[in-house]
């Protein structure tokens, strides 16, 4: 293994509060069970990586936390998904309010076909902020946080579609930051990007992790090892339902996995 152990081990836990947790969660698409009895505590202001083979339900699992699966007809959730003290699958939960607090970044950068400024201002505007001065402040702050400000400050009025892929993805992160979420979900945010753009996003994630709870799905083992504090390994059972195999500090998952299946996956992919 050509891994840097020092890098893995320096993820000292700075905060042990639980921000999100799933309790015996199962997810069904119609009759097909995509996730089975998953219980997991996600720490506040840390980066948690979800890894596992393709189709094991990583995206489905991530989309539990902002109820994005609600958009899929026939999707059903059993069990509890708790943010702070609230089960977000309670009947009286406001999904719109939830998604303000739990933002999401997608695999393929999806900036709106508007200007850079309008993209970032989109969320705040919809949430009732109309004052131009205030909006400009939010846009600048979010773009700075997303490490994009210096690159786009002269072309705020230009179409976001003219940015490079990596810039677009950071813009999408800025768009989420602008609504001041507490949690940011990222579904393979770098899989459409080149290595340099990927490293920039990873740096960005590290710097955001002091203020935000971040959950990231990734296929890239090095990336999981580089950026995450905690890692969860999901896998499919025979009926293709995803289960949680192992969960723990990233250093432990990658250097000393407790489960044979985790070890096989890590070494197969990683060694």
């Amino acid at each position: 293994m050509n891994m840097n152990h020092a890098l893995l081990n320096n993820r000292a836990a700075h905060n042990n509060e639980t921000k999100l947790k799933t309790e015996q969660v199962s997810l069904f698409y119609g009759t097909f069970q995509a996730l089975r009895n998953i219980s997991l505590d996600i720490r506040e202001k840390a980066i948690t990586a979800i890894i596992g083979p393709s189709g094991c339900g990583k995206s489905s699992f991530l989309r539990l936390f902002n109820r994005m699966n609600d958009l899929i007809i026939g999707a059903r959730v059993d069990g509890r998904v708790v943010i702070d003290d609230t089960n977000i699958y309670d009947r009286d939960i406001d999904v719109v309010e939830l998604r303000k607090r739990v933002g999401m970044v997608f695999q393929k950068p999806n900036p709106f076909p508007m200007s850079v400024l309008e993209n970032v201002a989109f969320g705040p505007r919809r949430h009732g902020k109309k004052n131009r001065h205030e909006l400009e402040g939010i846009v600048e702050r979010s773009l700075r946080q997303a490490a994009l400000w210096d690159e786009v400050k002269d072309k705020l009025g230009q179409s976001a579609l003219a940015l490079s892929g990596g810039q677009q993805q950071r813009l999408c992160i800025a768009r989420v930051l602008a609504v001041e979420p507490e949690v940011i979900l990222m579904d393979e945010p770098c899989s459409a990007l080149d290595p340099i753009a990927t490293l920039r996003i990873e740096d960005l994630m590290r710097s955001l992790s002091s203020d935000y709870t971040i959950v990231i799905v990734t296929h890239n083992m090095q990336q999981a090892a580089r950026v995450s504090d905690m890692a969860a390994f999901l896998m499919m059972e025979k009926d293709r339902a995803g289960i949680l195999v192992e969960y723990g500090p990233t250093s432990q998952i990658f250097t000393n996995p407790q489960d044979k299946r985790t070890e096989d996956y890590i070494t197969g992919r990683f060694g």
Partner: peptide, 26 residues
């Protein structure tokens, strides 16, 4: 494209806001 809908809904806009400000202009 579906991505636009998801991008908008994922930052806590209502369905109508998404339709009005993202889908309709497109």
């Amino acid at each position: 494209p579906r991505e636009y809908r998801e991008g908008s809904l994922a930052i806590g806009t209502t369905k109508w806001q998404t339709i009005r400000h993202v889908i309709l202009p497109q």
